[in-house]
Design a protein around this nucleic acid. Structure first.
Lengths: 352, 352
DNA sequence: CCATCCTTTGCATACGTATTCATAAAGAGT
DNA sequence: ACTCTTTATGAATACGTATGCAAAGGATGG
């Protein structure tokens, strides 16, 4: 347990050189079996613990990934973070987690900080579309990858949901149920998720020959309070929508509260669809119909790809951008009033 | 942005020694103003970024905290983690997050790993009561602190909820509403939270002169599936309870699903109380009456105390254990059928 | 003018490890 | 007995930074 014991101390006690101890630790072939045993014995006896800082210094790699998340209290990111941490550990990496609270200032601070910590790579979840610092980082050939949201112009590597298709599926589904006035509570325009889901929303309207009513589309922040107020605005319209599509589950959940607070029934008076499929959305009391993202897979792919980039970088090769679009899946539950089948524990709904 | 540029490179270009560059970077007083300016200029020009690994090496401190969490997808830990990360950053520290999935093996792995990374301190959220490795760590005078759960015999430092009182409040409240048969879905016996909340449950029964019925107390894991099945067991009793106290919110939420799946009404047929007050519990569709933990404060205190310990350790002083019990607060919402007042957005309920 | 102090700088070293280079001993083949 | 290879080890160095020590230059005061 003694952290201040070095290979030098071990060497001294074992009557060998520091180099030999190092060789034993790293499984170097040419070490006499007897010496090896002796060294291992002393290591155990003294409770030696390798110093990763020194190791990083000489090996020029920290075996550490940076992960910048926009809000770790959002279960969506919690699940992605978990997946990333699990897969990173699998590969002998650990993760420094940073929470930028969707603030550009924090984002820049953490990015710089992680670089100074000499992490081997950075996973961004999630960036805003025109983050100059991330663009610079991508250009500098530093291993990094984006999850969920991405930069504009396809810059850099990313693992994202096919948001356009996801939103298209969601809105098409609502229209197939007869809805024609569909509100859309969107996120910030500079978040690729919000922009792309809006695109999907518009496409679906077009496919059904429905004209766009701009008063039904509310741009804003991904924030509970904001989403609640946005829903209130939609409800206050003289010709109010019969359905609301929230740009993510938390938004939809806030809208749900607003609708209920107005004494309306879901789904009778108002249908509701979200995006992400966070854990709570499947709760019987919530039963949110939503577009699912495979969070475990996003994390797995992000780690897999960034490790490949790190390996490539070490061989001094140029990093080719990786673009991964995951197929979104519509999970039909109760908030659109169609799923009349009896729902049971762990019933994850039906896909479209 | 160039990470491979060192103080030596800067020194060369600025025509000074490496030591002088270092002195400029650290705001050392005796540097000629002209030299300082020149050096700063070159630093900017070359895009020099300090190497924290080397810095950690010589300063013998990493400015990094380890945080081992049992399940980051549980919003309770998400909020604690956020608070910890925020306060750590405030103090110039960063956080390596580890997820042990309540597995003893992962716990030991990560603890060891963090020590090898030479983090300055470790925050545990949450340990099991007889974790030998944590006990050893505490004994070794290494700065560490526990959140939420703690070791037995008051070993080490911790910031926890006064679980006994919290459970007492919750169960007393149920009894004040007339409930006499109250089920308790507990967590593992070797989690201090579970053990202490059970104690509070029993005390409350005693205070009301109600005899304990062991069939109403179900010990188990903090796991959705388990909690659901535990609730099913309670419902299957010939003389089933009229209320269920879940050892945490996720447990209560799972129980809620089970109760609803059995066609029962909440709160008419079954009252429900949880513990933690995670974000979703206040959702209008959930309205879970629960014992609140101040997650932000837990994080703040944990960081504050561990930084004190780190400072003390550096002065070679012995670390005095810190024991903090936070007063739990009962938040009354809808699941016990008493809160008839109109609930509105952001209404956090009433405290008892 | 000399002693003393303050300011400024460079040299050298330390942090703990991995690894190259050199060397020595031991076998192996002729 | 001799080279040649294989095995085994230690000495020395590098990684990038901070800092103690020495020294040089200038300023100050008597």
């Amino acid at each position: 347990m003694s952290l201040s014991i070095t290979t030098k101390d071990v060497a001294e006690k074992a009557g060998v050189s520091q180099a030999t101890v190092s060789r034993v630790l790293n499984g170097y072939p040419y070490v006499n079996e007897k010496t090896r045993q002796k060294v291992l014995e002393v290591i155990k006896e003294m409770g030696y613990q390798p110093n990763h800082v020194a190791r990083s210094m000489v090996l020029q790699q920290t075996k550490t990934l940076g992960l910048i998340v926009s809000d770790i209290t959002n279960p969506f990111y919690g699940e992605i973070a978990k997946s990333i941490m699990d897969w990173a550990r699998e590969a002998g990496y650990n993760v420094v987690l940073c929470n930028n609270d969707n603030s550009r200032e924090m984002q820049d601070y953490y990015q710089n900080f992680l670089l100074q910590k000499r992490v081997d790579g950075i996973i961004f979840a999630s960036v805003s579309m025109e983050d100059e610092e991330v663009v610079k980082l991508v250009r500098s050939n530093f291993p990094c990858i984006m999850c969920n949201r991405r930069l504009k112009n396809n810059a850099g590597s990313f693992v994202v949901s096919n948001n356009e298709r996801g939103a298209f599926k969601a809105v098409s589904y609502l229209m197939s149920l007869g809805h024609r006035r569909i509100g859309f509570i969107s996120g910030p325009a500079n978040f690729s998720t919000a922009a792309e889901r809006l695109k999907g929303y518009l496409e679906a309207l077009k496919a059904y020959g429905v004209e766009v009513d701009n008063s039904l589309v509310i741009q804003g922040r991904f924030h509970k309070q904001f989403a609640y107020e946005a829903a209130a605005k939609l409800l206050a319209l003289e010709n109010r929508p019969t359905a609301i599509f929230g740009a993510n589950d938390l938004t939809a959940l806030a809208a749900m509260e607003c609708v209920l607070d107005h004494g309306l029934d879901i789904p009778k008076d108002m249908a509701l669809v979200g995006y992400d499929d966070i854990n709570i959305s499947s709760h019987r009391r919530i039963g949110l119909t939503t577009v699912a993202q495979k969070k475990e897979e996003i994390g797995r792919l992000a780690v897999e790809k960034i490790l490949e980039m790190i390996a490539k970088k070490k061989r001094d090769e140029k990093l080719e951008p990786v673009h991964i679009y995951l197929e979104p899946q519509l999970i039909i539950r109760d908030t659109c009033g169609r799923n009349q089948k009896e729902r049971r524990w762990n019933n994850e709904g039906f896909s479209l």
